[in-house]
């Protein structure tokens, strides 16, 4: 089953963040709690963890992109 990962709300004050680095590449196995990617908000660099076990299928944003809360970030094939 494919599961879409959307940009979570990481800052109470802002809904637009700069996308940092990917920690997983398409085809990589992902476990719950693994860091998937980094996002720069107003005050910090947030490392966002996976909520699922599975395989990363697709990355929908790149480093340096401006992303909004709710944007499709990735797709995971859930085990």
């Amino acid at each position: 089953m494919l599961k879409e990962i959307h940009m979570p709300k990481l800052s109470p004050k802002s809904d637009q963040y700069f996308f940092g680095e990917w920690h997983k590449q398409p085809g990589d196995a992902v476990k719950e709690g693994d860091v998937l990617f980094e996002v720069e908000t107003d005050k910090v660099i947030s490392q966002v963890e996976s909520q699922e076990d599975g395989v990363l299928k697709e990355q929908n944003v790149n480093t340096g992109d401006t992303t909004n809360v709710g944007d499709l970030v990735a797709t995971i094939e859930v085990a």
């Binding site: 966002v48 480093t63 401006t66």
Partner: peptide, 21 residues
């Protein structure tokens, strides 16, 4: 999507984020 240079914040500003909690 608009492009911007990669983040320049220092390494220690990296925090993990547990959405469920």
């Amino acid at each position: 999507m608009e492009k911007k240079e990669a983040p320049k914040k220092p390494e220690w500003l990296k925090v993990t984020y547990d959405q469920k909690k």
